[in-house]
Design a protein around this nucleic acid. Structure first.
Lengths: 327, 327
DNA sequence: CTGAAAGCGCTAACAC
DNA sequence: GTGTTAGCGCTTTCAG
């Protein structure tokens, strides 16, 4: 940068101003600076900027790449952050890399807030940073004290699913739950109450699962081994629904003629033509926007109280649900 | 850090030494420094370290999260980088975020080398950095001049697939290709030559695809519309195979009894019990290790010539392939 | 509109 | 073993 200053014959400070689009330089100087930068192949140095700036305007994002819906959210965070004037630092959780390491890295990079997608941690793991740094949890397993949360009204989502099926004429509707995964207990509760409200308490059947394809496949096999197959199954998420659906197909059943299947997330998977899954939508763009907004409120507007932001889910009806067919 | 120094009553430089595990401090001092750091809640500042250090030892990784196999590679890069003493900086390519932006960000963070997974770019997009910064392309569409590449011998992989099917008794083997996607042309070529070598030139049938599930589904529909369905299909990758397989199932066919399907990548998808896809393996851990190694060779050992690292693929036989059944 | 000077938190080279 | 010094590349403050 000093090279540019020397070349153009101005001070370094002025060059800095120009790059930051601050007022205080004549249009001609600006032009000459940009040109010189170009000629010299100048690249800003993020380390130096970060070090010197009073605010880093960095948002740290913690994620895993295993759920298609989480991927959608990560992608949506970029434009949302930009809109609020923040940069994004990514840190992946992987098998050999736990949440602590990933958070430490983000904090070392001066992240002003941490967004965690599908937090696996027990609240205790976060206590060290909560309070020091704003934390926004997106679809957490359990809400940590002192952190904001963005999630959808899971019980309502499942209720819509049950209502949709009931209106199609289904009575025997099973649910494969998500165990301790984010939102799973609320979805399970939503299933139970909606079934009761519809007078289908006697048809309640919950199978244990965990949001993976294999848990869906396992549940499907369990159901196939029963005397009496339910006419519809609500999965804990899309991945689980995928396992259910394909295992049914493999067994020679037809979806939705023999059995209807509903997923949760409305991820890319649900939209595939050969999956074509009726699913409960949690808009990734909305979730990302609200999460960034929550962080910005703490950072820019000084909010200090916790917010629990609950989005309304909507059922997206596709080809995996239909009227039950008497056999 | 100066706080710690003051508290313990030593110089800042000594504290720095201790944190970097360098020799030059007595065990007692070390202990006292660590304790003071703990009490003060000290966190290292990556920006300052990066700025001051002669070497950043950062590896920039460019990726998309859309292919399960790419995700596997990203995860595998962490341990590989650590082994070679490097940190990892992630930058995602997404719809609203092109390769240029992502690379600029990584370079601003002082990445000493860039690893690109499944590079979409035409070589021209990289010319500005190639030569300035070592670039390693993992499974690139086309190899850029001046960059290293890590990929598998795609033609051999497909050849193994053809051989496996031929040995099972298949003659009518189709291929859904990957268009201009990484490795696709070589896989296509491998298919053609292996078929000819087996005396199956008359059975060569190539359908256009692009490594997505939908292209597999589309190809399956095309095949189903034909008078004569091939007894086996080799897909361009696992995602494509997934679309093929499920579309066949939907149409009431059985896999592998009515049609065998082979994928490519041996990604997580292939291993799902209800997909159970015979697939050509490109070990993510090996790919990651070799890519990091290639970068390290340039950075630490001064290599300046390009390397094209080609891995031997292996066919992983699962349940989606079997003997052809006469109908 | 422009410039000079200070310093962010740390590391590297050298002296003691 | 330990301390001193200088300075990475940039932004910020204050003075022209």
């Amino acid at each position: 940068m000093s090279d540019i200053a020397a070349r153009v014959g101005v001070s370094q400070a002025l060059v800095s101003l120009v790059f930051r689009n601050q007022p205080g330089a004549s249009p001609q100087t600006r032009e000459r600076i940009f040109q010189a930068a170009d000629e010299l192949g100048y690249r800003p140095d993020a380390a130096a900027q970060l070090l010197r700036r009073t605010r880093s305007r960095q948002l740290g994002v913690l994620f895993t790449m295993r759920h298609p819906h989480d991927v959608d959210i990560v992608e949506a965070i970029y434009p949302a952050a930009e809109k609020h004037g923040y940069n994004v630092a990514l840190s992946a959780m992987a098998v050999a890399r736990d949440e602590r390491q990933a958070v430490d890295e983000l904090l070392a990079l001066r992240s002003e807030a941490i967004l965690i997608i599908g937090a696996a941690s027990r609240p205790s793991d976060l206590t060290s940073i909560v309070g020091q740094t704003p934390v926004v949890e997106i679809n957490p397993r359990t809400r940590a004290d002192g952190a904001d949360a963005v999630r959808t009204a899971d019980s309502k989502g499942v209720r819509q699913a049950v209502d949709h099926l009931a209106e199609l004429g289904h009575r025997s509707i099973a649910h494969v739950d998500g165990g301790t995964m984010p939102g799973a207990s609320e979805r399970r509760r939503g299933y139970r109450t909606s079934m009761r409200r519809r007078g289908l308490a006697g048809h309640i059947q919950i199978l244990a699962g965990d949001y993976t394809e294999e848990s869906g496949a396992r549940a499907a096999r369990e159901l196939l081994a029963q005397d009496h197959l339910p006419t519809a199954v609500i999965a804990g998420n899309d991945r689980c629904a995928h396992g259910l659906l394909t295992t049914f197909l493999r067994a020679g059943l037809r979806v939705p003629e023999d059995v209807s299947v509903i997923g949760y997330d409305d991820s890319q998977l649900a939209r595939l033509s050969f999956i074509d899954l009726t699913s409960v939508r949690q808009g990734a763009a909305d979730v990302a926007e609200l999460a960034v907004q929550a962080a910005a409120e703490r950072l820019d507007e000084g909010r200090t109280t916790d917010r629990d932001i609950v989005l309304e889910p909507t059922l997206v009806v596709r080809g995996s649900t239909g009227h039950p067919h008497p056999r």
